[in-house]
């Protein structure tokens, strides 16, 4: 589709703004895990709906890119559709639902199941970039804590979890330490996705409302915080996908009838669809097949 709307600059933002964002991205890549303040612009979609991710995508996008957007792992969720349309309209770039074909992938709440490679960019939408925020509400104070590497409080939180529940009770947005230095919020991905963050692709994180960008260069060391005797556990539903039979993918639980019957299906729609196309079948797939 080459239907770029001529009323706007390529990918909506003006070039000055893009340069400002690129500078923030480069700084973020140079200091992995550090939250770089940037002058987030007011976008034509609401704060909290991916304005940070959209600005980062707009700043890195070139006309040759092939763009994919997922929300909750799915390409056809409403907000993913909305953001994909936005870039089709303002940048006229090609879009795809295939993880392997995409050069830029914007995501909310998931990392694709298929391993990403060099040359790909994964852009995360981030609501609250500060991993210490719910322990310390003041931004002035949390910035100081990062600067001085004062992360004791983070472990106090994990300690309290274990003391109370017998296990660390953070299921998503599970904090990580980057290259042994910065404690970072991985955005609200399920902890199942945390181990995937050591990857070959560039990872960029954009928080529009909070005016922060941070980044992970390829192959950056990312360690989920834990205790030696209570190690990090990236668990998921103990169940294969009912559509494609995958045992290694993150699953959504879908209630299918009034009696509370449920099925488990891959949250990554492209992964699930590709597997089914290759002949993989789950327990409940046959009925749908014909």
């Amino acid at each position: 589709m080459d239907g770029q709307d001529q009323a706007y600059n390529f990918a909506y933002l003006d070039e000055q703004t893009k340069r400002m964002i690129r500078r923030a991205i480069l700084k973020g890549l140079a200091v992995p895990g550090y939250q770089v303040p940037f002058a987030s612009r007011e976008m034509p979609m609401p704060y909290g709906w991916g304005t940070g991710g959209v600005q980062v995508s707009a700043a890195v996008m070139v006309p040759e890119d092939r763009f994919k957007v997922i929300d909750q792992g799915a390409d056809d969720t409403t907000n993913a559709v909305s953001i994909r349309k936005f870039f089709e309209k303002t940048a006229g770039v090609a879009v795809t639902e295939r993880t392997g074909e995409a050069t830029v992938i914007q995501t909310r709440h998931r990392i694709p199941e298929e391993e990403l490679g060099e040359g790909q960019v994964l852009v995360y939408q981030v609501p609250i970039p500060e991993p210490l925020r719910f322990l310390e509400p003041s931004e002035v104070e949390t910035r100081k804590m990062h600067a001085l590497e004062e992360y004791g409080l983070m472990h106090v939180k994990l300690y309290e979890d274990i003391a109370r529940h017998g296990a660390i009770s953070t299921a998503y947005a599970y904090p990580v330490k980057v290259e042994g230095r910065y404690v970072m919020d991985p955005s609200p991905i399920p902890k199942f996705d945390n181990p995937k963050m050591e990857m070959a692709a560039v990872q960029l994180f954009g928080a529009g409302r909070e005016q922060r960008i941070y980044a992970l260069p390829p192959y950056t060391k990312v360690v989920s915080l834990d205790f030696e005797d209570h190690p990090f556990d990236p668990s998921k539903a103990d169940h294969p996908c009912d559509l494609c039979g995958a045992e290694d993918s993150y699953l959504d639980e879908v209630i299918v009838d009034d009696a509370g019957g449920r099925m488990f299906v891959c949250s990554d729609t492209d992964y699930c669809g590709t597997r089914q196309a290759n002949g993989h079948r789950g327990a409940l797939a046959a009925e749908d097949a014909a």
């Binding site: 992360y151 004791g152 409080l153 106090v156 300690y159 274990i162 003391a163 834990d226 205790f227 005797d229």
Partner: peptide, 17 residues
Amino acid sequence: GGNVGERLMAVGARNYG
């Protein structure tokens, strides 16, 4: 326990037990 443990964790203690 968390109050007493905080200083230990601040200087790197990572074994819950």
